[in-house]
Design a protein around this nucleic acid. Sequence first.
DNA 1: CAAACTGTAAGCGCCACGGTTGCAGTATCT
DNA 2: AGATACTGCAACCGTGGCGCTTACAGTTTG
Lengths: 148, 148
Amino acid sequence: MGVSSRSAVAIHALTMLARWDDKSLTSAEIADSLASNPVLVRRILGSLRDAGLVWATEGRNGGWSLARPATQITLRDAYTAVEAGPVLSRHPHPPSDACEVGRNMQDLLDAEFRDAERALEERLSRTTIAHLVRQVLANERAAARRNH
Amino acid sequence: MGVSSRSAVAIHALTMLARWDDKSLTSAEIADSLASNPVLVRRILGSLRDAGLVWATEGRNGGWSLARPATQITLRDAYTAVEAGPVLSRHPHPPSDACEVGRNMQDLLDAEFRDAERALEERLSRTTIAHLVRQVLANERAAARRNH
DNA sequence: CAAACTGTAAGCGCCACGGTTGCAGTATCT
DNA sequence: AGATACTGCAACCGTGGCGCTTACAGTTTG
């Protein structure tokens, strides 16, 4: 296991919004694609809205749209918007102060883990939603070509 | 949250074994430093043993020792030994096959997430247990100097 | 007013987690 | 031999977060 699947849902939703960016999509439409529930989608899109990545119009014919071009939204943006805590958990309790190692490990480990998490986020920041849309369309074209 | 705290415990234990590598340490001693439980420590050290990082002698005066020099054990070794699944969770369910995005996202996301996880592990592999021991000793020397 | 949306709060069952108890096996010490 | 001090392992518990659902208030359009 590990981090929640909210990032996956967020990236999925953003990719859909980018794929059909001429119209807005409802949480029900996105939930259908995810084989999930509209409320769950709204919760996650709510986090993305708070992060300034998407916006919603309420009422009938309402729905969700990207707040900026898909070329300017990275996977890291989605990840940090929906994921709270650190990836790598630290000590459950503070270690013993009486131990030479114990009284130093927490800070040392924190520095190492932060660097590692930074490396993960840095890699995520190298892929944009636009890139994923391009790959989806390319895959679809290839699949259509195979069906002749 | 995120990944379990087993990595933190494993690295803590390895650092202790490396710090006092002239003798073997019991699970109780390590548990004391962690303010935790000997059984929990044994569970995690058991994984490290299966990964070939440490070994134990049973019976009275038994205990744990490193299986190879601390310069040749990285944080990645500890991490992969105790942590099972992927860091970043994928879709809870397979998405809908009827959606153009849905039927492509899983593979695309998996590739991206694997790359990101690889980046995290790569960073962890750059720090050895010996390096942590060196920092602990340096911190202790600095603290002793301040107490004059 | 009815319909179709978003937005929230509350609750559900599930599962992994850290932690604990209990006990069998094994080596050492007296 | 018998007490002692370890590892090893299985079973269990309480907690918390997860994905998911229901219910309902608010908002805009037909």
